[in-house]
């Protein structure tokens, strides 16, 4: 092995970087997959918040599902004031949630479209604040908005490549549907990403559940192959690198 070291960005999740050689490879695509309620959005927003406040890395949050005012409210519970970061120009929120009143109702779709509009919108925000981190939460919602999944799959490759070409590290969240064995509704999410984290919230007895995290892959890194305990604390998500999940 040579002494070459990959430049890394800190995840902002206490304990996680110990599992992945100190952080995510800079400019890579990281997928955070998990079923509903496993903490994907919290992890993604924490990645942006800590990046802006502790590592001087501005971030862009693209929300395709949850309205921004609810995200801001929910993150305030962990003492993470996203609105303050937006005012300081350290965070930019792209609101593409379905809650917008002016969004037209789509009544027709022909298999002859691309996502160049999404690319232009995101890059506009990235360039404005010179973002180093980008989160898209969540790709899965597009599966319900558009029928033409073959087009979406191809467009995802183009979209993610154009974002990482700016040098930004891209974190995608993907919801694993119930009774589904893959890592997302498109079954290509894991191919898009050079790193995959899977979050769990498994029932371990009749009375309790246990949260855990697994680094399924991370190209260019030696990473833990165990499933580690994870908790959602008052300060956000924390991982216990030395603790193996009781559900594992």
């Amino acid at each position: 092995m040579s002494d070459f070291e990959i430049e890394r960005v800190k995840s902002g999740i206490p304990g996680l970087d110990d599992l992945i050689e100190g952080g995510f490879p800079k400019g890579d695509i990281i997928l955070v997959a998990g079923r509903a309620g496993t903490g994907k959005s919290i992890l993604a927003n924490q990645f942006l918040y800590k990046g802006a406040t502790e590592y001087d890395e501005p971030g862009v949050l693209v929300t395709l599902e949850e309205p921004p005012h609810l995200i801001r409210r929910n993150m305030m519970r962990f003492g993470m004031d996203l609105a303050a970061l937006e005012k300081e120009g350290k965070l930019s929120v792209v609101d593409l949630s379905p809650s917008k009143e002016v969004t037209p109702v789509k009544i027709g779709e022909y298999p002859s479209f691309d996502l160049s509009g999404l690319e232009a919108i995101i890059l506009n925000h990235v360039n404005k604040i010179k973002a180093k981190r980008v989160v898209i939460d969540t790709l899965a919602i597009l599966a319900y908005k558009f029928r033409s999944r073959d087009i979406l799959r191809e467009e995802f490759f183009k979209l993610t490549a154009s974002i990482t070409r700016t040098g930004a590290t891209l974190l995608l969240t993907s919801e694993i549907p119930a009774q589904h064995d893959g890592l997302g509704v498109f079954d290509i999410e894991a191919f898009l990403a050079s790193g995959v984290l899977v979050l769990y919230n498994e029932m371990i007895s009749q009375q309790s559940r246990s949260r855990s995290i697994e680094v399924l892959k991370l190209r260019g890194s030696k990473h833990s192959s165990r499933i580690h305990s994870m908790r959602i604390t008052d300060e956000g998500i924390r991982v216990w690198p030395a603790e193996i999940s009781p559900g594992a």
Partner: peptide
């Protein structure tokens, strides 16, 4: 386009 939430084109 962002104002209208339109990102798939045309």
């Amino acid at each position: 386009a962002e104002k209208y939430g339109v990102f798939a084109l045309p």
